[in-house]
Structures are given as structure tokens and as C-alpha cells.
Design a protein around this nucleic acid. Sequence first.
DNA 1: ACATTGACCTGAGAGC
DNA 2: TGCTCTCAGGTCAATG
Length: 262
Amino acid sequence: MPELPDVEVFREYLDRTALHQAVESVGVSVPEILADISPEELQSQTNGHQFVSTGRHGKYLFARLSDDDWLVFHFGMTGYFSYFKDSKKAPKHTRVLFGFDNDYQLAFILQRKLGKIFVARDIDDFIKQQGLGPDALDENFNAEDFKKTLKETTSSLKSALMDQARIAGIGNIYSDEILFQARLNPKARANQMGNQELDRLFRAMRDVLKTAIDSEADPRRMPKTYLLPHREKDGKCPVCHGKINTTKVSGRSAYFCPKCQS
DNA sequence: ACATTGACCTGAGAGC
DNA sequence: TGCTCTCAGGTCAATG
């Protein structure tokens, strides 16, 4: 799930649920997912404080605590949040559980333990440390910057889009959708694209990510012309109704329409 | 500088 | 029903 649109939806969820509630307990059932602190440190860091604001860069979600540090969530391949009344049982695979003084709890859920929680003093420093490029939806990251970034690599378009050091936020699913909307082949070399193609790709990137957020990252709510709901074995192209192909691009499976994305 | 592979983890679904 | 195999929206390190 958790690429840029998913994480943005989680951020909005956090904003309308756990924000401004005082934390009174923090349960850590899997300490390995804490990147740079112990469970005890996490507890002393958060207990008695509130989450006061949120932010996001690429696939990372930031939640500022009222003591001015930030908790940083990365959702791996399977992560999500659930906010629920504490009389209910925590969902399966809850790895960290925040309890609030309003009798609600926030679960950080990871089926596979590939997610992480970090603590950061400063977001910009954190982004630098992680080596992240500009957020794909950053207004300051314009078409010219995008073209420059893509022209400086010989890798495939799909790998370039997914490279968090170049552009932060795009993963396997949305790179396929963006390339489909731009009608470009995932294996095409980035530095061999012309300005027209790259402009088209840039527009598709922004459109797809924004549309996905508006659809709450739910494929069922996305436009009929989107590839995402057909991203499966024997899927049919929503535009030409031909068969969807799969191939491997830097180790990940890519779905594309060989006719529309020649 | 790039692609590829395996590791990290757990579970769902396919095929037998 | 149960076993085995493959695959999964992410990232990192090692290797060619």
C-alpha cells in the first residue's frame, strides 16, 4: 500500500483522529521496528505529550510532539494506522500502540515487519540523512527540475521514478500508473526521452498522485481509465482492451499495456 | 552507474 | 485438508 498517496491519506487520518490527544501509554510489541531508540526512550519521549501537527515527505509521515521532536513513520509494504476505542481489541500485527487519555488508541500496524519509527529533531535534517529527493508533489519541484533529474540517468523510466533519491514518494504501483497515463514504456531509457515526453510524464505524475489522494488511495474510486484496478494477471487495458503485459524492472514486477505504451 | 539478487518478515493464494 | 511454491505496494547490501 504505502506510497505517497497512501501515506498522505494516513496523514489526514491522523489529523482527524489522534491529533491533540494526550498520550498516556505506549506499548511496543516489536522493538526492532524502532529505528534509533529503545521502547523506554519512545515512552518517555511521548508520554504526557500530544501530537500537535503532521507532515509528509515521500513515503515518510511526520508527527510533531508537543515537546518539539518529531516521530517519523515509515510503513514498509504493509503498514497502516487504526484509531479505535480502547475497549476494542487491537488489530492483528499491531506493533506499536499509543493510548490516549480520551480512551482511544492508535495502532501502528505492520503485517511484515518492514516499517520503522524514527525520532527526529529536524525534518530537513532527517530528509537529508535518508538521502531523499524532493517530494513528488512539492510545488517547488517543477517540470524543469523534473526533466533535468530524468535526463541525468541512463536507467529505465520506471526505476528512475521509483528512486527515492531522485524523487520521493513513488513506488511500484504508482510508477506503473504514471507511466500508463503518460503512455510511456516502463523500460524506456530516461535520458533518451524528449522534452515533450518528459513534460507529459511530469503532468501524469502530478495528476495520478493527486487523483489517487482524492480517491483516498482506493483503486475502486479511481477513474475508469486507470490501470490500477486492472493490475493483475490476465488484466485488460482500460483504454484499448488489449491484454496487460508484465515484465521485471529492477527486480519489481511492472504491469503495462504493450499497445498503449509502445 | 546500473541491474540483479537475496535478505529482512509474514501471510495469501495457487496448484497439487 | 494439507503441503509446497510463488508472490506481495519497501529498502538495503553485496555482486557483476
